Amino acid sequence: MAGVVMAKSMPKSMRKSMSKAKSMPKLVPKSVPTCVVGAARRVLRAGVALGVVGLVVGAAAPVPKPKPVAPAVDPHEADVAQHGSLTLADGRLTVRLTPQNHGPSDVADTTLRLVWSVPLTDRQELPAGCVRSARTTVLCRTGALTAGSRGDEIVVPVRLKGLRSEVSVRIDTLWNGGAKDINPDNNRHEVLVLETGDVYTF
């Protein structure tokens, strides 16, 4: 009764508003179809499975081994040598030699040193590229020597002071363009020459 009295005592505008609210449809959330939920679950499971497979494949992938690196060749390494012959007759000793470069690098120039065991006469006629540096020593340039090649033959005739029955001659490389000689034994020679006119090779 009190509720009725209260409703009657409400203003007319308020009673209309409450009547409209009662007549509005209720917003009840509809249930999601089962097929949609199932599809979403399958997508989620597939994504997780792919992630696991990716991790397994990544872990099992072989790590490439580094390729062996060939040792670098020293650009200043060269095996310089010289070979030739000597003869002694009538106080005149002649040296014939051919410089060689066995490689592996080219050489711009080399200087050979020839040392006699006895003094030379003051006047000498030396070939181009050769100079006298001491009483018993002559230096000769070979010119450029490419790897695996031979240079031009160098002929050095000298006159000795007095007649000698034998003379020792030492031949070596004084300078090889700053290259590291990996086999210095083949450019150092010492030859004993008898005054017979015979040819002595080295």
Rank of each mutant, 00 (worst) to 15 (best):
A2R: 11
A2E: 07
V4L: 14
K8G: 13
K8V: 15
S13C: 05
M14D: 07
R15C: 07
S17T: 14
S17R: 09
S19Q: 14
A21H: 02
K26L: 11
V28D: 04
T34C: 12
C35M: 14
G38V: 04
A40Y: 10
R41F: 12
R41E: 13
R42P: 07
L44K: 09
R45H: 10
R45N: 13
A46Q: 08
G47P: 04
G51I: 12
V52R: 02
G58N: 09
G58E: 07
A61H: 04
V63Y: 08
P64V: 14
P64I: 15
V69Q: 13
A70V: 09
V73L: 15
V73C: 11
V73K: 15
D74E: 08
P75H: 09
P75D: 05
H76K: 14
A78S: 08
A78P: 01
V80M: 02
A81W: 01
S85A: 13
D90P: 01
R92W: 07
R92F: 05
R92T: 15
V95D: 01
H102M: 05
H102N: 09
G103K: 13
V107T: 03
A108M: 09
T110C: 03
V115M: 10
V115I: 13
S117M: 07
S117P: 10
V118W: 00
V118M: 01
L126V: 11
P127V: 10
A128S: 15
C130S: 10
S149L: 03
S149M: 02
D152F: 02
I154T: 01
V156M: 06
P157H: 12
V158R: 01
L160A: 06
V169R: 00
L174G: 01
W175P: 00
G178V: 15
I182F: 03
N183I: 08
N183S: 06
N183K: 06
N186E: 11
V191L: 06
V193Q: 01
E195H: 03
D198P: 00
